[in-house]
Amino acid sequence: MLEDAVLSCGNHPPADGRTPGVYGRAHRNVRRERGNPGACACGRPGAEWAFNDDTPPDGFTVGGYPYSFDPAAYAPVCIRCHRRAARRPRGTEALF
């Protein structure tokens, strides 16, 4: 049945806040294990968990974003730093 299906455009979560697939499952696992993000490396309050490129990923989304099922592979980041990091080419120096 498709009543529980979650459709999404790219890597953006649906309007109800659920993130589909393994990418979403990886992020929910981080929040469950580590709670809310702490302070970002820039000093702002952390708002999201971001994959740390120093860790080999478990996979990539269709859009090319890496993810891991290891909660230690994520760093707390503010929205500004997370968006800036997502725009840089993979393999360049990590921002956090």
Rank of each mutant, 00 (worst) to 15 (best):
F60I: 10
T19G: 07
P20D: 12
N36D: 15
P66L: 02
N29C: 13
P56V: 13
G21T: 11
A72S: 15
F51M: 08
A73T: 04
R34G: 05
G46D: 00
G59Y: 02
N29W: 05
Y67M: 00
A75E: 01
N29T: 15
V77D: 00
A73Y: 03
V30G: 01
G63C: 14
N36T: 15
R31L: 05
D53E: 15
R31F: 09
A85T: 12
C40R: 04
E3P: 00
G91V: 03
N29H: 12
A72G: 03
A50Q: 14
G59N: 09
D4H: 09
C42F: 04
P57S: 02
R87D: 12
N29F: 04
E33R: 14
A50C: 11
P37E: 07
M1H: 02
P14T: 14
F96C: 00
A26I: 11
A39C: 04
R32K: 15
P45S: 12
A85I: 02
S68Y: 07
R25I: 05
C42V: 08
P71S: 10
G21Q: 11
H12G: 03
P37V: 10
L2R: 01
D70K: 09
A50L: 02
P20Q: 12
F96A: 07
P66W: 00
A85W: 01
G10S: 07
R25K: 14
E93W: 02
H12T: 08
G63M: 13
C9M: 10
G43R: 10
G24N: 08
G63P: 03
E33Y: 01
G17I: 10
L2Q: 06
T92S: 14
A85H: 06
P71D: 11
N11I: 07
R87L: 10
R84W: 07
R87T: 13
R88N: 08
G21H: 12
D58M: 08
R84D: 12
C9S: 10
R80A: 11
V22M: 12
A73N: 04
A72F: 06
V22A: 14
C78F: 04
E93K: 10
A5L: 03
A41V: 15
A39F: 01
R80C: 09
G24W: 05
P89F: 03
T55E: 08
L95S: 11
P37W: 01
S8Q: 15
G59F: 01
G17K: 11
D70M: 00
P20N: 08
R83D: 12
R87G: 01
M1Q: 00
G46M: 05
R84L: 11
Y74A: 06
D58Y: 00
